[in-house]
Structures are given as C-alpha cells and as structure tokens.
Amino acid sequence: MSLAALFLRFLKFGMLAFGGPVAQIALLRRELVEEERWISSARFNRLLAVMQILPGPEAHELCVHLGMRARGRLGGLLAGLGFMLPGFVLMLALSWLYFQLDFDRSWLGAALLGVQAGVAALIVRAVHRIGEHVLVDGWLWAIAAGSAGAALAGISFWLALSVGGAVYALKRSGRRAIAVCLALAGATLGAGLALTMEPGAPSAFVEGAGKQPGDVAAWILFLAGFKTGLLTFGGAYTAIPFLRADSMRQGWMGDAQFLDGLALSGVLPAPLIIFSTFVGYVAGGPWGAVAITAGIFLPAFAFSLIFYDRLEAVLENVRLHALLEGVAAAVVGLIAVTAAQLAWGLLSDADQRLAVAAILLAALGAVYLWKSKLASPLILLAAGVAGVLAF
C-alpha cells in the first residue's frame, strides 16, 4: 500500500468515526482484522489492552500503531492524521460559526441549552462506566473519594494524581503502612492548601459566548493540551476535568461554553477529545485551536511512534500497572466532581431549572437503556429538539 493510499484508508475511518471509542474500535476490528487481515485478532486484543493503559484516545493510538506496522513511522503519522483530520476540520468550522451567530436570540441557543443537559447526562454515564472498570477494590474507591474531595476544595489535580498513584503502588507492593502514611500526609497537605487558598478571579466568559475569540498565546494553549494529553487515562472523558480546570482558572471560558464544545464534539465523526479544538478556538482563535489540538494529540502519536517495539515489555511491569491504576482512580474522582459541577451550573437558573432537569433525567435514562453505537449523537439531537420546544 502506498503512503497516499494508507492516508486515504484512515481518512475514510475518520469520516465514519461516529459513536465514540467503542464504535470506532469495532469499525477498525471489522475492516482491518476480520476482513483485510492486517493483524491477527489475538494480537489486536493485546495491542488494545496496551493502548487502554496508556494516556490518550485509544482508537487514534490504534490507527497510529497499525499505520506504523504497514509503512513505518511515516505511515503511522499519516494514519493518525487521516483519522483525526475530518473531526478537526469540522470542529474548527463549527467553532468559527459559533462566533458568527447570535445564539442568545435564536432557536440555536435554546437547542444548545437542551444539548448541554444531554451532555451532562453522558458525562454521568461515563463516570459510572469508567468507575466500574477502575474502582475494583476499597483502596481505589478511597483514592477516588480523596481526589473528589481535593477537587471540591479547589486543590490542584497534580496532588491528587501523584498521591493516588503512589499510594496504590505502595499498597500493591505490600507496603500498606507506608501507603496509609502517604495518604494521610497527602490529605493533611491538601487541607492545609485549601485553608490558605484565596478565591480565584471569575471567568470573563462565564455568561456565554463573547463576540470574538480570546487572545491567549498559542504556546500556552499547546502546553495545556499537551498536559491534558498526558493525563487522559481510561478514555477521552478523562480529559474533561483537566481542560475545564485550565479554562476556568485562566478565565478562557465558562461552563456554558465548555458544555457547548462538548455538545458539538458529541455529534461529529471524531474522538470526543476533539472538543479541545473548540476550547482552543474560544481562548485563542484559529491558531489557538491548532495549538491545543496539536498538544493534546502529541502523546497519542508519540507513544506508538517512539516506543513501538517496547510498549508491551514496558507495560508488563506490575508496579507501573499499579501506579497507573491509582492515577486512574484519582481521575474518576475528578470526573465525578466535574459532572456534578456542570450539572449544578445548568440548574442554577430558577426559571429554566425544571425543564433542564427534565431533559437531563430523560437523557440519562436513554443513555442507560439505549445500547446502539449511534445512541450518543441521537440522544444529543433529541435533547436539542427538546430544548427548542422548552425554551
């Protein structure tokens, strides 16, 4: 296969990447494993297990890895670009359109409010789904609860992730007493930091869309994306609390806009993490969108392109597994708090509270009962229609 043909092959996958990572991985398996025999089913399963441990969107990382098997590092780069390009272009176009229309005075604003409620329901379901696989013992539940408490207190997630990973690694190595002491030290440090912190400045964008994108420097957005890309353990939903923390702390955007970005990404053929393009556009315009997208996808490219021959050997280290499991548990706590805060923000307007709550609960019921790979985009579409009717 030529490099051009390889790029077009994965560009096609990118155009059909609806339904989230499960549907995307199923598409790759059906066409490349079962029909075209690029790789054996057993090897694909082992590769998928490795990619799920690493940070980053696993479907995209699979594309990079398979492209590299076909045509080396350049093939991996082209395969990854082909898979992400349709979603990036569409999100960039929607981000531009977001600032061209007056949402507050049109039915689009009502539709987006309904979709925001649907997005909140999807995040709640994601917390449950991720938690089922990650929180498999009492220690991990305790780490998640501690991380949630730190987030509510406004403590940097770096402390929660570091302590959570180290505590569980110590526990798995048989050093339970040291693990308990470290957990208590982390809790004490977190409480001390919470008592000395001053309230942050309110976001300039809290009320909704500004008339123009912000002017945040591209390199700042690139670093924010890169940091998020390194911390997205367990799927794209884990990127939400990290980008939201930066967005709110730096005043780039408020929760309403943040939910708008998640809503738009939920109906595109792309990894959910493509909502970062919207965040970058709101904060820094077109170049900001490019910068944050490059940063957030860089780890997904790098792990396969640099460590192609060593991934499985490195990840056989049991201590590393335990460290990553502790970090993943802390991330579950962060997502849970983020979901609660976003939902609470939606319910803060007394005039709209009942209608928003009704849409959120209906969407939540549909998310749990409807198992189709197209469930997420169709639920968001229905939530948008309900928003138009209600508001």
Rank of each mutant, 00 (worst) to 15 (best):
M1C: 06
F10C: 08
A17C: 12
Q24A: 11
A26P: 07
R29H: 09
E35N: 03
G56F: 14
P57Q: 13
A59F: 14
H60Q: 15
V64Q: 06
M68T: 00
L74E: 04
G82N: 11
M84L: 15
G87A: 02
L94S: 00
L97H: 02
W107Q: 04
Q116H: 00
H128A: 14
H128T: 12
I130H: 02
E132G: 05
G154L: 05
S162P: 00
A169Q: 15
L170S: 14
G190P: 03
L193M: 06
L193N: 02
A194I: 08
V206P: 10
G208L: 14
D215H: 11
I220E: 15
L221F: 13
F222V: 11
F226N: 05
F233S: 05
I240H: 01
P241K: 04
F242C: 08
D260K: 03
D260A: 06
L262G: 07
P271S: 07
S276W: 13
T277W: 15
V279Y: 12
G285I: 12
A294G: 12
G295S: 07
G295C: 11
L298I: 03
L311I: 10
A313N: 09
V314Q: 07
H321Q: 15
H321V: 15
A322P: 13
L323W: 11
A329P: 06
A329C: 01
Q341A: 01
Q341F: 05
G345V: 04
D351E: 10
D351T: 14
Q352N: 08
Q352W: 08
R353F: 10
A358M: 13
V367F: 15
S372P: 03
S372K: 04
L380Y: 07
G387E: 05
L389V: 15
